[in-house]
Design a protein around this nucleic acid. Structure first.
Length: 557
RNA sequence: UGACCCAUGGUGUAACUGGCAACACGUCUGAUUUUGGUUCAGAAGAGUCCAGGUUCGAGCCCUGGUGGGUCAACCA
């Protein structure tokens, strides 16, 4: 069974069910599955489900199948299948190397349908979709039985076969389960099992003219694969009686459907339809736009698989509706990157600083720590010289008291990280009143690592040497939506944050950054984590700001 | 005027077969710090939707409300 002796973490309700099933001997091994429909990209909500299903299989020594729910050829595409596989592999889960497809079981499903017809539990209905809808009733008013409900088994068999052979037009006939038109559960009012679609299927081609509905496919596929625990979201609760009805009336392996609450993330939309809209309307630059909550977008942004898994695990599993604070995701990302990302010095808004008492032509290499959280990351050297750039945000003409403000200002002293302590002796402004140059003098005996100056400063600034700095493009991201729950709005367009993307063309970084490759993430000290974007060229790197550092100073101001 | 599900600090999740509510994120202090990061120490913040009931004792059980979610695609 599990390793519960070591981890005391309380079990969620699904784990409790699983452990009970294992204990009672109901199952010797558990099987779960992740069943995406290939009609869009995977997003953070799917991640929760993926992590749940795969980690349960890992924890209890079972298996988790990746199964594409490809029962609707009109909406599904191969490109989505490819993207989904890529995302799951990126997360690092083992689906046995071979995905399954609902379409693998079309033949079996067809046999199942015939079995129900023969048992008098399914019939071909000649009514139109409109008629069926009109006679379904409402939640409080029973529906009316179809005039075709009681035709003979032989006629049903014949008609169904002809449906399969493509003899009818789409919408002309449908195969329905004969259950109960008066059921208080609308889904039990003779639900459709098969509909006619003369569409080419990405995998089965033109073989079929009829395709099974979700309800007639999902549970049976679970059953065929021996899925023991079929985990899905709350909106399928009402489907469970139907899920069970098919399994019972077919007499096949009883997979058990268990529902849990889907993930909702603050300031984020997780609706495939709306995400698709963002892409198609050009509001974002594709499915992998770093502002998108898609796995591909988050990956490009620089979020790690480890962080997303940790987050998915942290939010827990329960049955109540929830809205998880996006700060939680950000916390997971920072926690992971803090351990993994090497530090570099970078400047987003360059402001020139001249050390007037430093030799004109001297370039001195200073030693810098790559990652204080990981000694093995080693050290590097960066050039220091008379002319540097610091960040505009690190200088103020009229700063508040030194107790509250540690950075540079007239007469103030700061340390240039890994370098020397400098004192501001003056500054110059342009015609518009913008500070364009800061003048300093340095204390030669204050060099990092061999400081004998005895000077104590509170502030430490990032900097780059003007002559050696590398110019890069930096893309800053903010949340795509300005309201906490954009899904609530009638029109999500009104909730869009107009400042979700800011491009800085001329940020500066220390020279060694040149060697980074797309996908690499570093921390620009004091600023945040930045990941090299695939848009980078040999001439110019492009960085995505993955996430800022926590900033308790900015928060106060 | 139906069925099913849910209801615990700001947010999310816990509390074994009933024994006066825990953890995480967030927030706020303070310490350390050559990142106003990290780390460390600490604090505030709920009496468990409401009303009854059972019980020596209920967040957990029962009844009735209230509030929220889902369902009337030939979507998944």
């Amino acid at each position: 069974m599990s390793t519960t002796d070591t981890d005391k973490k309380p079990l969620n309700f699904i784990e409790q069910i699983i452990e009970e099933d294992l204990r009672s001997g109901k199952h010797k091994q558990i099987v779960t599955r992740f069943p995406p429909e290939p009609n869009g990209y995977l997003h953070i909500g799917h991640a929760k489900s993926i992590v749940l299903n795969f980690s349960l299989a890992e924890k209890y020594g079972g298996r988790c199948n990746l199964r594409f729910d490809d029962t609707n050829p009109e909406k599904e595409e191969q490109k989505y299948i490819d993207a989904i596989i890529r995302d799951i592999e990126w997360l690092g889960y083992d689906y046995g190397g071979k995905p399954f497809y609902a379409s693998d079981y079309f033949d079996i499903l067809y046999e199942y349908a015939i079995k129900l017809i023969k048992a008098g539990k399914a019939y071909v209905d000649d009514q139109t979709a409109e008629e069926i809808s009109a006679t379904r009733g409402t939640p409080s008013v029973p529906g009316k039985e179809s005039p075709w409900r009681n035709r003979s088994v032989e006629e049903n068999l014949d008609l169904f076969e002809r449906m399969k052979n493509g003899e009818f037009k789409e919408g002309e006939r449908v195969l329905r389960a004969k259950i109960d038109m008066a059921s208080p559960n609308m889904l039990l009012r003779d639900p459709a099992m098969y509909r006619i679609k003369h569409a080419r299927h990405p995998r089965t081609g033109d073989k079929w003219h009829i395709y099974p509905m979700y309800d007639f496919a999902h549970g049976q596929c679970d059953s065929i694969e021996g899925v023991t625990h079929s985990l899905c979201t709350l909106e399928f609760e009402n489907h469970r009686p139907l899920y069970n009805w098919f399994i019972e009336n077919l007499g096949i392996f009883p997979s058990r459907q268990i529902e849990f609450a889907r993930l909702n993330l603050s300031y984020t939309i997780t609706s495939k339809r709306k995400l698709l809209q963002l892409v198609e309307e050009g509001i974002v630059n594709g499915w992998d736009d770093p502002r998108m909550p898609t796995l591909s977008g988050m990956r490009r942004r620089g979020f790690t698989a480890a962080a997303i898994k940790q987050f998915s695990h942290d939010v827990g599993i329960a049955k109540r509706e929830n809205l998880i604070d996006v700060a939680r995701l950000e916390h997971a990302v920072r926690a992971d990157l803090n351990r993994k990302a090497n530090r570099v010095l970078g400047i987003l808004q360059p402001l020139k600083l001249v050390i007037e008492n430093y030799p004109e032509d001297k370039v001195e290499m200073v030693q810098a720590v790559n990652n204080p959280e990981n000694e093995a990351a080693g050290k590097r050297e960066i050039p220091f010289s008379r002319e540097l750039y610091i960040d505009r945000n690190d200088f103020m003409e009229n700063p508040p008291s030194p107790r509250k403000y540690f950075r540079l200002g007239p007469e103030r002293m700061v340390r240039l990280k890994y370098g020397y302590i400098v004192k501001c002796t003056g500054y110059e402004k342009d015609a518009d009143g913008n500070v364009v140059l800061v003048k300093c003098e340095y204390y030669p005996e204050s060099k990092s690592g061999q400081d004998t100056s005895g000077i104590k400063v509170k502030g430490t600034l990032s900097w780059v040497s003007a002559a050696q700095a590398e110019k890069v493009e930096v893309r800053l991201y903010d949340r795509l939506f300005k309201s906490e729950n954009p899904a609530l709005a009638d029109d999500f367009h009104t909730e869009l944050n107009p400042d979700s993307l800011t491009v800085i063309e001329d940020a500066l970084v220390e020279p060694l950054v040149k060697e980074l490759q797309p996908g690499d993430t570093v921390q620009f000290e004091r600023l945040g984590y930045f990941t090299v974007d695939p848009d980078s060229t040999p001439d110019k790197l492009v960085f995505n700001r993955t996430i800022t550092l926590r900033d308790s100073w900015a928060k106060k101001s």
